[in-house]
């Protein structure tokens, strides 16, 4: 699910942008350390392929359709960190060039549809491999891993919508998860099918992916720790200026009696939100600070950690 702009509130999208920036920067650093130019060209070709495969729609119940995500495949074949870069590229193109997914929420989309898939699917696959290294185990591991990746990312979306005050938790969760269980089955079948074919015809590709994943997952704990600190820090900064909606939401509690119209922001021209004028300015302040902080972080991290490679 590509979240559009405006669905998430400032503290949520800012935190996720920072988290994504950190993750992507580290992934770039990991690649410079571990991948040679041949493997990088391979990543590029795979990115083109996944981008093309995303045009594959498959029918879900009720006349609607889902499409292939690809983060699980990227993670399985390239390793988690390279997979993150590949999915970032795909999502960047979709957001900027096709309006599929918002700009401010790019961080959220990268984490939901990139990072989660690239780590969950290979992890599940590795668990299956510990138990049994047969061909069937590989295929089922890939399929099950992809399924969980899709479902987990939908849970992430539901959480993000809830913390933004755009949706009530249980409703968002049940709808998202139900929808994505179906999509997850489709993605699991497709990924499993691809892995089945490759395991038979060119198993070296899977082996290379397994090696990359193995070294990828070692660095995860370090990076997660860093990200957690970043995320906590930024959300502290941004949440000292509560959003109009959340002020209402957290004050009034979940699922309570309908809130009087006057305290909810309405698009009518002469609306005023009684008693929350300071909050309004606070939102603006948070917005500006959040945007600038994120921008600076993104710039600094990417420019610092991914300086141009020296000529070979």
């Amino acid at each position: 699910m590509h979240i559009p702009d405006g669905m998430l509130d400032t503290k949520t999208y800012t935190t996720l942008l920072a988290g994504a920036a950190g993750t992507v920067s580290y992934a770039g650093y990991w690649i410079r350390k571990n991948f040679d130019s041949g493997k990088i060209v391979l990543m590029a070709v795979l990115a083109a392929l996944i981008f093309g495969l995303q045009m594959l729609n498959f029918p879900i119940a009720g006349g609607t359709s889902g499409h292939f995500g690809g983060s699980s495949l990227a993670g399985l074949l390239l390793g988690s960190w390279p997979g993150v870069i590949v999915m970032t590229a795909v999502l960047l193109v979709q957001a900027v060039f096709f309006g599929d997914g918002g700009i401010t929420v790019l961080g959220a989309n990268i984490i939901n549809m990139g990072v989660i898939g690239c780590f969950v699917a290979p992890l599940v696959y590795q668990i299956f491999q510990r138990v049994n290294t047969s061909y069937i185990s590989k295929v089922v591991g890939a399929a099950v891993g992809s399924f969980f990746a899709v479902v987990l990312s939908s849970i992430a979306v539901a959480i993000e919508l809830w913390t933004s005050g755009s949706a009530q938790f249980t409703a968002a969760l049940s709808a998202m998860v139900f929808w994505h269980v179906l999509i997850g089955i489709g993605e699991g079948i497709i990924t499993g099918g691809i892995v089945a074919y490759i395991a038979k015809v060119r198993p070296q590709i899977l082996e290379q992916g397994e090696q990359s994943t193995h070294s990828s997952l070692k660095s995860v704990t370090l990076v997660l720790a860093v990200l957690a600190i970043l995320a906590a820090g930024l959300s502290f900064l941004a949440s000292s200026f509560p959003d109009g909606l959340e002020y209402v939401y957290f004050e009034m509690g979940i699922g309570s009696a309908p809130i009087p119209e006057s305290t909810v922001a309405s698009p009518m021209a002469d609306y005023l939100v009684p008693g929350v004028e300071n909050e309004a300015i606070g939102t603006i302040g948070a917005g500006i600070i959040g945007a600038i902080t994120t921008g600076v972080l993104l710039w600094a991290l990417s420019a610092l950690l991914t300086r141009k490679r020296k000529p070979q």
Binding site: G28, A44, I85, A89, L92, V93, S302, T306, R309
Partner: peptide
Amino acid sequence: PHILVLLLTFM
């Protein structure tokens, strides 16, 4: 980051 530029060019 340059790697993203490379990926996008190829895509």
